[in-house]
């Protein structure tokens, strides 16, 4: 695979992950358990949309066909999005939201840590900026998993359920295909296998502090990176893209 082609795809994948999770969190605006937490979740959503925009813009620049961030966000069809299924999972209760966030943020924390030394300047700068944000998202969600796990009996079982539901959605984050192999061998992106055990150990440490004994393994998620999504995706994009699709002759 041509390096530029792989780079475009890679940027779009990172952008898609951030966009769909940013969307999920934006659904929670005005629904937080209290005002401070409402603001915190909006903050994470804002950071993720910032990352989305950088990645889509970069993809457009490499591609050189004049496609903008909004072309990627609003004019692609569901199979063209290549985000992991993890980010499509519904917000559920606050425990579900935080468990999903933890898995996502811990993974991206390790990815960005490595990616910031990429020989591609754009990717390196993007990773360095995003690492700061992601470090905060990771701490925030991990602290909540601990508080909920070691809080009341009710919160303990709620977060246990949430973890059982979401934990096996981590697998997809570590998948590799031609896009990844091309960029890994060109030295542009890290091999996720190198930090898989660090990722698992970090989560385990949080689970220990949260007094969670064991998390169930479920279906090993797969499909997002080739555009095979969960049923939830079909309820996200129609809303996300509704205005430009309804008024195709208007500029926004």
């Amino acid at each position: 695979m041509d390096i530029n082609e792989a780079l475009i795809k890679y940027c779009l994948r990172l952008g898609d992950d951030a966009m769909i999770l940013g969307h999920r969190l934006s659904e929670l605006c005005s629904k937080g358990p209290y005002l401070e937490e409402d603001i915190a979740m909006t903050n994470i959503s804002l950071d993720l949309f910032g990352q989305t925009r950088m990645m889509y813009t970069t993809a457009g620049e490499i591609e050189g066909k004049g496609r903008t961030e909004d072309d990627f966000a609003y004019k692609r069809l569901e199979p063209e999005f290549q985000n992991v299924l993890l980010v499509e999972q519904p917000n559920g209760n606050f425990g579900n939201t935080m468990a999903r966030q933890m898995v996502f943020s811990v993974f991206y924390y390790y990815l960005f840590k490595e990616l910031q030394s990429s020989s591609n300047e754009k990717l390196a700068a993007f990773a360095a900026k995003s690492l700061k944000e992601t470090t905060y998202h990771m701490r925030h969600s991990c602290e909540w998993i601990v508080r909920l796990g070691d809080g009341t009996e009710e919160s303990h079982w709620k977060v246990q359920d949430a973890l059982n539901e979401i934990w096996s959605y981590r697998h997809e984050l570590f998948e590799k295909d031609e896009v990844d192999e091309t960029l890994i061998s060109a030295g542009l992106i890290p091999d996720t296998a190198t930090f898989k055990s660090a990722f698992e150990a970090s989560v385990q440490e949080v689970l220990d502090r949260a007094t969670i004994e064991e998390v169930e393994e479920g279906w090993k998620s797969t499909g997002g990176r080739i555009g095979h999504h969960s049923e939830y995706m079909g309820h996200i994009l129609p809303i996300f893209q509704s205005i430009p699709r309804t008024y195709p002759n208007s500029k926004w």
């Binding site: 629904k31 358990p33 937490e37 606050f94 508080r147 809080g151 009341t152 009710e154 919160s155």
Partner: peptide, 12 residues
């Protein structure tokens, strides 16, 4: 809906 979260945070 947020009550259990606030209770958990207090208990912790």
């Amino acid at each position: 809906e947020g009550a259990w979260v606030r209770e958990a945070a207090n208990a912790y």
